[in-house]
Design a protein around this nucleic acid. Structure first.
Lengths: 238, 238
DNA sequence: CTACAATAAATCGTATAGGATATCGTATTG
DNA sequence: CAATACGATATCCTATACGATTTATTGTAG
């Protein structure tokens, strides 16, 4: 990474002759740094467990240490990086098998109920959005393998998120979304090319919503998560 | 608060004549600052929604700005403080009624199942610990009202936490513990003196565990949470 | 007496410098 | 040849100074 392109070209010059409204830069530098590091984590540009030196970030992002430390602290609070005293920051380690099982146990407790509730309050507009999010349209978009999986990962995330959003409990939604960031990194390590089956199951969920069948929605969501678990479990046999 | 007692008396003197092993200070300053602010939040010394100026913390804790910013960032990542650009940090606002309902919905989905599972794997030692945590012994310790409630709040927290710990899912445990910090602040705002009923319900849960009756444990835990919800809900009618 | 504007204070955001510690490489000795 | 000790480098941790922005206060005009 030899691209020292600064986030903001020149920060401290505010010429009175140039009345540029600084409205477009409402976010603080620390926030931009946060997003930059978050993106690198999600794209696996920073491997799980590897060190994160603030000095490198200073050079790469062209900002001083303070906002970087602040952003790193926030990421630590969210569990994405860990800090060892007098050693430094590092990306959170890869998810363990035990943690993986716990995550699916949690999902199994929350998401089927969310689907049940969502089916009861599903509107026509929400259903259309959900169908759009499921991406059943451009299913056979013949891109390369990696690109296809990348798109599926994004679709899968928003699909499940939207269901929980329709169900209405924002707290549960945040909880699952937060866990999903960890899960995403794990899943990216293996190019699990099991998208076809998952897409079928997504359609089954949609069908239950379309029929406003709450019990079926809960049941098929449970099956979907259980199968997802089974599909991903072999990844630990490496 | 005019007590500028420093966290660490003198940080930068390491006399070669005094071979004090610096092992006891394994935690970084930022971590100590984190705990200090966390404690103030929990004790309501910083009211929800009120401003938190780093300058005050610099004076009160006798440390520089950098570790304070780092700790504040971490607290932000955990949702306990919020940051507004060019305005500063402030304690997270009081929980809304909607959020309160969502929290109990989440607890209702997780804790009864945890109790069900816990009853199946309950050991004699764990049951003893749980009974100790429930504090049925010194129930009528005739302290003042506030002191009694403070003790109940702590007991209630560890009681529920231990049950989930026995159940074995560490992720669910962390999720609930995290939410409990928010909940604790809310509950502290009202000196809900409904401890007697809750203690009765705790004993009912214990009885189910003692009988290793998993279905009863789930049922009575559900009842406990539902009643807790009903007890606290009037707080929003202020 | 109220509303608006300008000034002053407070606070955040940023940058830079220096001290302390862990890690890694190298040399020396058993 | 292996193991240990020493030293250099890299990095974190802390402290301080300065600039930019927001907010509060005060004075003046209507």
């Amino acid at each position: 990474m030899r691209s020292p392109k600064p986030l903001i070209a020149s920060f401290h010059l505010s010429e009175p002759g140039a009345p540029e409204p600084p409205i477009h830069r409402a976010a603080s530098l620390a926030e931009e740094v946060y997003e930059a590091i978050f993106a690198r984590l999600m794209a696996l540009k920073i491997a799980p467990g590897s060190r994160i030196t603030v000095d490198n970030l200073v050079r790469e992002l062209a900002v001083s240490q303070t906002p970087i430390r602040e952003a790193l602290g926030r990421l630590e609070g969210e569990g994405l990086v860990v800090k060892t005293h007098l050693v430094g920051y590092s990306a959170a380690p890869q998810i363990t098998r035990r943690r993986f099982e716990e995550l699916y146990e949690l999902r199994l407790l929350l998401e089927p109920e969310a689907a049940h509730r969502a089916a009861q309050v599903m509107t026509e507009a929400a259903l259309a959005e959900l169908t759009e999010a499921a991406g059943v349209m451009h299913r056979s978009g013949g891109a390369d393998e990696r690109g296809r999986y990348s798109r599926f990962a994004r679709q899968d995330a928003v699909f499940h998120d939207k269901i929980v959003a329709v169900a209405g409990n924002e707290l549960i939604r945040e909880t699952l979304a937060h866990q999903h960031t960890h899960f995403h990194i794990f899943r990216l390590m293996f190019h699990a090319r099991v998208t076809e089956e998952a897409l079928d199951e997504h359609e089954a969920i949609l069908a239950a919503f379309a029929a406003r069948d709450a019990d079926a929605a809960r049941r098929v969501m449970r099956t979907h998560i259980e199968r997802s678990y089974a599909r991903l479990l072999p990844a630990f046999d490496s």
